[in-house]
Nucleic acid binder design. Structure first.
Lengths: 244, 244
DNA sequence: TAGATTGTTAATCGATTAACAATC
DNA sequence: TAGATTGTTAATCGATTAACAATC
């Protein structure tokens, strides 16, 4: 399919090439792989820390040391944001931070409700987690008369029967589920028709993403405890082998 | 390095082959990749559910439907446990469940302390999470006089100054860190010298695994919220594009 | 035996690492 | 200019999927 480099028309190709190359560099719509996205919050935290310490400049190898991600992978990941670095210099921390923040949707505003005002719900309401991530908790709900009417931060605990209307009227984005024991059916019924944009699920029961058309993050804390005990039992076994 | 197949001594090799092959099948020491380990708790939960419903038999395609993991990958994963299935029949749920449980170290006993008796610490103490995973909470600690002496489940909240001695004397395996705000240095100082086997860290500050010689699981809840808001902002953008 | 389903090998896909030319 | 460090391409590695022979 190669053409000979003789005819004057070919010069048009030469002119067009830089334009195409530019598009490739800025890559505004290129889908970022999930593996990369999952590393971004770590970069985000690290860069914020650096900003707090007034560090203005960082190289990929320094950031590698701080994050535990290889320098090569770091540069590969940052490529998706399009030329945030400068050859021979490194990355401007501020620029990198805002580039990642923007791409992650931090800084945009989200509204949320907490469902379940037990200890976990209380812990989350009191944490600064939401404000730090641009999420505004606009309501807290519970089934129990014991807590309905209590004050949690800026919110008064409401009856969960009002949840659906509240979410629709206030255009709530995220439901934070802190219900200690529930089966999946109950959870789905609870959030169905609320017009939510996403679910952050702390309940011990996992919500199957295939059954719902909005993003769900299941925390699955029990799974992570299991992972820990697995690691511990592996080391126990190794120690026993070494002894015998 | 090949030898000719003539001398009678070579028959020894032939005799030995089945023994070596057997070892390969049972694979007791083969390292299971991390990607596989991370799927096991999901299988574990699913199989327990099936046992509760008295389902005795399951095929890889049925389990695939339930877990969202492809049948091919499931069979590939289960291979590490060595022949738990039967061709033409499927898997015996009970056998599979106990095979995975054993490998994950569930059923073994672990001891733990909860550090931080705030809302999060309370939520964890009250949950049945630990007993379900073979972990026995033997102590709860806090800095604040307001909660020291309170009763949490089977435990009385102790002063965190007693933590080190308690852990060493009672041979505690796991510290569950529920301290709302702390820097890494504080956390490391807290657990240093406790003789722990692992750390389950709920604090907003991540512990760098490279600085500590025992397994650490950092929950990083804030990161998962960030991941959710990213997903939401992606869909928002898509919706906006479709409108215009 | 015929049908079903595993265990396993080979093919594909994607993610990570290595290397180096481009360039500040 | 010389040194440093990115952006990018190629090589490697590992994980997932497809396919099918073994066998219940």
């Amino acid at each position: 399919m190669r053409r000979k480099k003789t005819a004057p028309e070919d010069e048009l190709d030469i002119i067009e090439i830089p334009a195409i190359a530019d598009m490739t560099v800025s890559r505004p719509d290129e889908e970022i792989p999930d593996s990369v996205i999952k590393r971004l919050p770590r970069y985000f935290r690290c860069l914020r820390e650096l900003l707090n310490r007034d560090v203005m400049k960082i190289s990929s190898s320094e950031l590698s040391e701080l994050t535990g991600v290889s320098a090569s992978q770091l540069r590969q990941d940052l490529k998706y944001f399009g030329g945030l670095g400068q050859r021979g210099y490194g990355y401007n921390v501020k620029r990198l931070y805002s580039g990642i923040s923007e791409r992650l949707g931090v800084g945009k505003k989200y509204s949320a409700v907490i469902v379940g005002a037990g200890n976990l719900g209380k812990a989350l309401s009191n944490s600064r987690l939401f404000e730090q991530r641009g999420v505004w908790v606009k309501g807290v709900f519970d089934v129990s008369d014991k807590v309905i009417g209590d004050t949690l931060g800026e919110n008064t605990v409401k009856n969960v029967s009002e949840l659906k209307d509240f979410c629709r009227n206030s255009n709530i984005d995220i439901a934070v589920l802190c219900i200690p024991c529930a089966d999946q059916g109950e959870l789905l019924k609870l959030i169905d028709g609320c017009g939510l944009k996403g679910v952050w699920n702390f309940s011990p029961c996992e919500i199957d993403e295939r059954l719902i058309d909005i993003p769900v993050v299941n925390l699955c804390t029990a799974d992570s405890l299991m992972y820990l005990t697995y690691e511990i039992s592996c080391r126990r076994e190794k120690d026993n082998e070494n002894k015998s």
